[in-house]
């Protein structure tokens, strides 16, 4: 069951997730074998800064996800602020400006669910630090579709609520520190 080839890796979080993400990226040995898509709850104004920051801290090419773009292995994409990020049947990104979900846009639930429907067992999702419960329901769907579901270990999370919710609700087995998450990505 763990032999699934990962075709898409989603990493999501809210408060405290950026630190964890930077730690994870700093320990990658090579360009990841799958596209990585980042979904963070952030203010729209900070979006350009976020992309610059991620670009500066990792050798992986970073850009904002564009609609109809097909994500490529070895690239890092950031969900645009103020849009939900969805996936079409051909694997491409799709954007949706409809109402917030869990007070959030982008919502992690929306992206996890949509990616689960398209990528099924080829999906891996990772939930990092955060202060609300966005992500758990999307991960439930991803899990049901055979995706790999990983939560940041609450002990290492600046704000443990978000990963804790998913671990508790979904009885997640893969609970990793940022270093272990890097290892996981390095082994893809």
């Amino acid at each position: 069951m763990e032999e699934n080839r990962v075709n898409l890796l989603l990493i999501a979080g809210s408060a405290g997730a950026l630190d964890a993400l930077l730690k994870i990226l700093s320990q990658l040995h090579a360009l990841p074998a799958a596209p990585i898509v980042i979904i963070l709850h952030r203010k729209a104004e900070n979006q350009a800064l976020l992309i610059d920051l991620l670009g500066a801290r990792s050798p992986i090419p970073v850009k904002e996800a564009d609609e109809k773009e097909i994500p490529l292995a070895g690239h890092l994409y950031v969900a645009p602020a103020d849009y939900h990020l969805l996936f079409e049947a051909d694997g491409s990104f799709s954007l949706d400006a409809s109402e917030k979900v869990n007070y959030s846009r982008p919502s992690i639930d929306v992206s996890f669910s949509s990616a689960a429907d398209v990528y099924c067992q080829g999906l891996a999702c990772i939930l990092l630090s955060g202060a609300n419960n966005d992500g758990t329901e999307g991960m439930r769907r991803a899990k049901a579709k055979g995706a790999i579901c990983i939560a940041q270990s609450p002990a290492t999370a600046e704000v443990p609520f978000m990963p804790e919710q998913a671990i508790k609700e979904l009885s997640l087995q893969q609970v990793y520190s940022p270093a272990q998450i890097s290892q996981f990505i390095n082994q893809l």
Binding site: E67, L86, E88, A89, S94, D96, S98, S114
Partner: peptide, 9 residues
């Protein structure tokens, strides 16, 4: 219409 969003609606 794009399917992902339409399906969601």
């Amino acid at each position: 219409y794009t399917m992902a969003s339409l399906k969601r609606r």
